[in-house]
Design a protein around this nucleic acid. Sequence first.
DNA 1: TACATGACTCTTA
DNA 2: ATAAGAGCCATGT
Length: 115
Amino acid sequence: MAKSNNKESAYEIIYAVVRSIPKGRVSSYGAIAAAIGMRSGARLVGYAMNLSHHVKPKVPAHRVVNSNGLLTGKHHFQSPTQMQELLQKEGVMVINDKVAHFEDLFWDPIKELSL
DNA sequence: TACATGACTCTTA
DNA sequence: ATAAGAGCCATGT
């Protein structure tokens, strides 16, 4: 931490955006990264999600998928099927580890929050 | 200070 | 259309 100006780390901001994702909607790492100002910080978002397991309040990481709508991070959940189960539970259909109608359910933080 | 890591994304072949 | 490589940022050691 070279700079302690920011009380909250970049991850905290990422968590905030992810928590802002409405139920039944999904978003992508790149979109979130761009929303916080990092056009190519998608990897950071994914990394943050990995740490979000012990973060509170709970972070709906299952609502975050890659640009293709693929559940790339499902393997990092408590169970590889947890992500799919949670999404289906919220009304999101998942087929072959991919979000159905991804473009339709896609939630853009920039567009939605900026609206 | 520098190197290594990571649930991504884009461009090119 | 599929496969492979490079780019990117923040964090931790």
